[in-house]
Design a protein around this nucleic acid. Structure first.
Lengths: 127, 127
DNA sequence: TTAATTATTGCGACTCTATTGCAATAATAC
DNA sequence: GTATTATTGCAATAGAGTCGCAATAATTAA
């Protein structure tokens, strides 16, 4: 299944680049202003995750957010053991840089890591 | 708004006690076998969280899970900075005991912590 | 440059999780 | 026992995400 370059794909990718934070589906839908279909955005983002271009965060609002991560570039040991911060006020989701490791009980095998802290970001806190 | 004791509330509470792990709404619905309405379960669980009887975990499947936590008993400094493990195979969600602390950027204020690691649990791994 | 192949798109329908309005019910307090 | 009002059940609703399918368009080979 070879990937193709399409305007939609490029649009989503550059929207993520410009955003510089994690974006939800509906944020992307807004940003792209109806130029790309809802379902298409979902599919493009899922492909990005499969291909290791972006990573998916499931925040504590139950929604998915997607971010390009520089760390993603090195393919080997592709893990995202870092936390994300979601502001309860402005709803922005961003990557925190601190890596975290958690000890699992014996016999447990980790496959995905999903850490989100929500609260008030700096901009919203100083209002 | 004083709380009342009802059969439904008691049923949900004891189901959580028996389970000894985190339960999702639908698991609870199963367990209670139609004796309690769907919406009622949702409301009871939300009340439990407000009252500090249970805590809510939003797992990486986007669903909510609820667990009674002994730690919840001490009211002061009511935080749940521990991880949860969700087995991708048997779909059980359990609390891990290790506490984790994450350094936030300056000016950021944490209110909720939500950490989930998914993978294969011991029972499912040894099949 | 054209033709063939097939990944991708758009649309609509659908599933699933969770919430809410409202009238009826029942736990508590007097 | 009666009054007050928290709680329940039901149905309707909202929102996130997925899927099937026919149409479209990016790639590849001719």
């Amino acid at each position: 299944m070879k990937r193709r370059n399409t305007p939609s794909k490029t649009a989503v990718l550059s929207a993520l680049e410009r955003a510089n934070t994690a974006l939800s589906h509906d944020k992307l839908l807004d940003t792209l202003a109806g130029s790309v279909d809802r379902a298409t955005i979902y599919r493009i983002l899922n492909r990005f995750c499969e291909d290791g271009i972006a990573h998916r965060i499931v925040a504590d609002d139950g929604k998915q957010y997607f971010a390009l991560c520089e760390d993603c570039s090195h393919q080997e040991e592709h893990s995202h053991n870092h936390f994300h911060f979601r502001c309860l006020q402005c709803d922005r989701v961003e990557c925190l840089t601190t890596e975290v490791s958690v000890n699992l009980p014996k016999g447990y095998l980790a496959e995905n890591f999903n850490g989100v802290i929500s609260g008030k970001c700096r901009a919203c806190g100083s209002l």
